[in-house]
């Protein structure tokens, strides 16, 4: 270091600094830029959905669009009622959730609280690997293995039903539910378990009354992720849900969930045409649906945090 005053006249060794820290400033700018890009991309997607979807909602009044039971995009005049798709999505999601949540949370409890550490460490990566299965492969498995079984055991005309799709979706959302719930349970401080055992609790009481409630925020997040996956999954439901356009009254009927409706329709739709806009409007509703699921999850999380926060 030069033993002279710097440009501003500060003596060497003083707490003043003549030049700004450029490195710091540049890094701050880069991080700010990255954050903005992520937000802008999301905003852009939403704006495109709105721009392409709104025309359909002007052409077909919103309530008619949402509650209409017929989808005849090429008849004259065309009708765009998405209720069958909406109900199909609900059926498939409901079945998937009802199956996957108890099994997934149960498996997570087993891995985190009951299984020896060695077993848990071996099983968890395998479970997580399952979430990486391409959905087209899961659809194929559903087509070849599950649907004949569903058809025969329930004595149906076809094995390609909402139920079949729901079961496949349950399998696909299991890994994420197991993995995230298990992490949440592992994060429960051991002091809680010790305290509960010290009060004369059985293992089951410790798990059910201490560990699961303490991990509830994480477990609800896991459930919401699973639900989100079931709502958004496309390829598998396109392959095994049956593709019928009628309003499904039972889960054992063939049906077309909203994602499948978009995927199967977009190839035939003329860009800028009415059907094209209607498909975007379905996308918009899907987006709102997943947004609602996420908002509910966030509400649960913050309510939970507020209740148990340290001060």
């Amino acid at each position: 270091m030069a033993v002279t005053a710097d440009l501003q006249g500060h003596p060497p060794g003083s707490i003043f600094r003549g030049k700004p820290r450029w490195g710091e400033r540049i890094i701050e700018k880069i991080i700010f830029f990255n954050g903005m890009v992520a937000i802008l991309v999301l905003l852009g997607v939403f704006i495109i959905l709105l721009r392409e979807g709104i025309p359909a909602l002007i052409e077909t009044p919103f309530f008619e669009f949402l509650f209409g039971t017929t989808w005849y995009p090429v008849s004259e005049p065309p009708t765009f009622g998405i209720l069958p798709f909406f109900v199909a999505t609900m059926w498939v999601t409901l079945i998937s959730t009802v199956l996957a949540v108890p099994i997934g949370v149960g498996a997570a409890v087993f891995l985190a609280e009951v299984a020896p550490r060695r077993v848990a460490d071996a099983v968890k990566p395998i479970v997580e690997l399952l979430s990486g299965f391409p959905s087209v492969v899961m659809g194929f498995i559903g087509l070849v293995l599950l649907s004949p079984w569903v058809q025969n055991s329930l004595n149906l005309n076809t094995g390609l039903t909402g139920l079949t799709a729901g079961i496949m979706l349950a399998m696909m959302s299991l890994p994420i539910i197991v993995s995230v719930s298990e992490d949440a349970l592992r994060a429960v401080p051991d002091e809680y378990r010790q305290a509960a055992y010290g009060l004369g609790s059985t293992k089951w009481e410790v798990i059910w009354h201490v560990c699961v409630p303490s991990a509830l925020s994480g477990i609800s997040a896991a459930v919401m992720l699973g639900v989100g996956r079931a709502i958004g999954e496309t390829m598998t439901v396109l392959m095994v849900a049956g593709g019928a356009l009628a309003l499904p009254e039972l889960p054992t009927e063939p049906m077309t969930p909203m994602t499948a409706a978009i995927a199967s329709g977009i190839g035939n739709a003329v860009q800028g045409g009415l059907q094209y806009h209607a498909l975007f409007a379905i996308g918009l509703i899907l987006f709102v649906l997943t947004l609602v699921v996420n908002l509910i999850a966030a509400r649960i999380l913050t309510a939970q945090k507020r209740k148990f926060a340290r001060e």
Binding site: E191, A195, G198, L199, G200, S214
Partner: peptide
């Protein structure tokens, strides 16, 4: 353990209300 209770080094109330903590046992 009901008859031989234990208090730990680090205060470790359960993440629940004061009432529920005491009523737990």
């Amino acid at each position: 353990r009901k008859r031989v209770g234990m208090v730990f080094q680090k205060p470790n109330p359960f993440p629940m209300s004061i009432y529920d903590n005491v009523a737990f046992g």
